[in-house]
């Protein structure tokens, strides 16, 4: 099977171009102070990951790519619409100057759609389910960075929206993951819940949000890599993977518990300080 598929795999040059563009898009968004250029960075980011997602041309992969494209394009257009409305109302295109409440709410909702916060989260489990683990890793770590940077730059004004989004996300993330047997869907709901925590503390201590983001990235990275090495995508396969690699299976609960926020691991510290704040 692998031999038959081999000629269809992506050329390394194109793969390099796509990965570099993925980095470039996020960097443009980081570096920009004008909404148009931030939007361009987001667009480049979305465009570059599409072929990586549809790499194997499996029906599920193509479907996930289509859904991802539609949500991301809509969210990007909404971001641009919010900034245009702001420019019409206040005459400012600067990212820091988005002050009018109407475009600010619209922008927050658009960014929530982009990173998959409840109640705009429904695309995330489906898309993540259709991808292979490597692309899923990129999707749940690197792709969150650019929208999060925008969210950090415009946060202090719209507290009610942010709190509502955060609360709903933590609840939906916690409950949604309960009934799943597919590991990628569980990871998607875990992503929703963690992002909910980050959004919740965003307006009180942005530095804590960044710390949570970084530790979330670290733990998600290790989880995805463990799953990738064991080649598991369901709970069943994970529970029988001790026959294949006992040591790693013994260590996996450490990561998972850490992701879940149990003591004495890292995430507890953050949830604790979030509550203290």
């Amino acid at each position: 099977m692998l031999v038959k598929l081999q000629p269809f795999l992506m050329s390394p040059l194109i793969m390099t171009t796509l990965l570099l563009s993925l980095g470039l898009g996020t960097t443009i968004t980081f570096a920009s102070s004008h909404w148009l250029f931030a939007w361009m960075g987001l667009e480049i980011n979305t465009l570059a990951i599409l072929p990586l997602m549809a790499q194997h041309h499996h029906p599920r992969a193509v479907e996930a790519t289509t859904k991802y494209f539609l949500t991301q394009a809509t969210a990007a257009a909404m971001i641009l619409f919010a900034s245009t409305t702001n420019a019409w109302l206040t005459g400012q295109w600067n990212i820091f100057q988005l002050t009018h409440p109407l475009p600010l709410t619209l922008l927050t909702m658009a960014l929530a759609l982009k990173i998959g916060l409840a109640p705009l989260h429904t695309w995330l489990p489906e898309v993540l389910q259709g991808l292979n683990l490597t692309t899923g890793l990129i999707l749940s770590t690197w792709q969150k960075l650019a929208p999060f940077a925008l969210l950090l730059q415009t946060q202090p004004m719209n507290s009610t929206t942010l709190i509502l989004l955060g609360l709903v996300s933590t609840l939906v993330g916690g409950w949604g993951g309960l009934n799943q047997t597919q590991l990628r869907k569980v990871l998607a709901y875990s992503s929703i819940a963690h992002l909910g925590w980050m959004i919740l503390v965003l307006q009180f201590t942005p530095s804590l949000t960044l710390l949570t983001l970084i530790t979330y990235f670290l733990m998600t990275f290790s989880t995805f890599v463990v799953f990738k090495l064991n080649n598991v995508t369901t709970m069943n396969a994970l529970s029988t993977s001790w026959t294949k690699s006992p040591t790693m299976t013994a260590l996996t609960p450490l990561i998972l518990l850490s992701l879940g926020g149990l003591p004495p691991w890292q995430d507890l510290y953050q949830n604790d300080s979030s509550f203290k704040n």
Partner: peptide, 27 residues
């Protein structure tokens, strides 16, 4: 153009471009 490329890819894998056919990934 990226959207149209996806349209072609979806028509290949799912047979048509109907949105109802995009139901392989539901929970």
């Amino acid at each position: 153009s990226a959207g149209l490329g996806l349209l072609v890819a979806t028509a290949r894998t799912h047979g048509s471009d109907r949105m109802q056919n995009l139901n392989l990934l539901q929970c």
